[in-house]
Design a protein around this nucleic acid. Sequence first.
DNA 1: AGCTGTGAACATATTCACAGCC
DNA 2: GGCTGTGAATATGTTCACAGCT
Lengths: 204, 204
Amino acid sequence: MPKATVERLPLYLQCLQAMGDVESTVSSEELANTAGVNSANVRKDLSYLGSHGVRGVGYNRLELCTQLRRALGLIEKWSVVIVGVGNLGSALAKYRGFDASGFNVVGLYDADPAKLGHPVDGHYVKSMDDLELDIKEHDVSMAILTTPAAAAQSVADLLIEAGIRSILNFAPSLLKVPDEINCRQVDLATELQILSYYQAAGRA
Amino acid sequence: MPKATVERLPLYLQCLQAMGDVESTVSSEELANTAGVNSANVRKDLSYLGSHGVRGVGYNRLELCTQLRRALGLIEKWSVVIVGVGNLGSALAKYRGFDASGFNVVGLYDADPAKLGHPVDGHYVKSMDDLELDIKEHDVSMAILTTPAAAAQSVADLLIEAGIRSILNFAPSLLKVPDEINCRQVDLATELQILSYYQAAGRA
DNA sequence: AGCTGTGAACATATTCACAGCC
DNA sequence: GGCTGTGAATATGTTCACAGCT
């Protein structure tokens, strides 16, 4: 499945869910409009999931949601740890959107002893020393990294060593990871800088 | 300038800054390695800024930083408002990375009267009613949207009406905006879902 | 010798346009 | 009639490979 397609699947899922229970069937044109995508693109993307549309009618909304969730691996419930309980880390710990889409935050970790034991959204912040055992014990395969940039790489190494296979990195620091580890970088300042570019010259 | 290039410029800037003051000259190969990009790609990207490299030598690091900042419109200091002072909104208000790259958070706004007047990182949360005047008065052209999904579109409309030209949207809701408005969507759950896809089938 | 800048080749992604089916 | 699924056409992005400069 093309990378570009994979990155749009969550969007489709979101759009379908936002439609509410009113529509039982959806056309590629409708979905394309709400997702801001070309309808042929939608059809091609969905065709990678197998042909579940009906010509002359459209796609069954609920069935399509299920197909999308299956394709994205959201049938299983993933356990996630958050490492770095600063402003962003604790905000993410409290963020309800993760649970809603099949992710379960099972632990928060921080290197700062002053933070240990503090409660954040029902979790007590634990020491980095607990990370490895917890990851293995709870079969955690994803981590959200919200440490300062300077610590990010060494924490990532530690996580990978402990068996983590996917990392969502919010630290403004590019991680070097082995090929078999999935890593996505979300950089807030970068996003603003891109907006700045387009705005600076009126190039909207 | 190609969209793909624009989205890499902030990365180059970050890498150059992370190198510290040790290196005064950088080759496309070095930059490519730290940025995780092909070196020909780096050279092509940088060539859009004009030819500032020296054959046989490389690029002057500080000069290149300046060129990048100029291209990204980071010479001017942009004023930004944050609308929606929930967990994420207040975390972003406290995030130092914005200031560091030329953005200045000038105000926080929330629709919830219970939050009004509360201090967050030196700012007192203001009412939505103050938005329009503040935006005009302080010549604010960028907004960070951290409201619940349900409110996002109407807040966006209000912002645009008030003169905002770029929106960074964290609400999990796709905004309909006029062509001349720059809008970027950052969806945290989406990012995890993409990781989930690659992890689910061991397709790293 | 070493590195940039760039045309040409390749790869990926999007869109068009229409045959095929309900 | 209306909508899907998809080959063919186009557009965008990346990489190669090397001429050209210092």
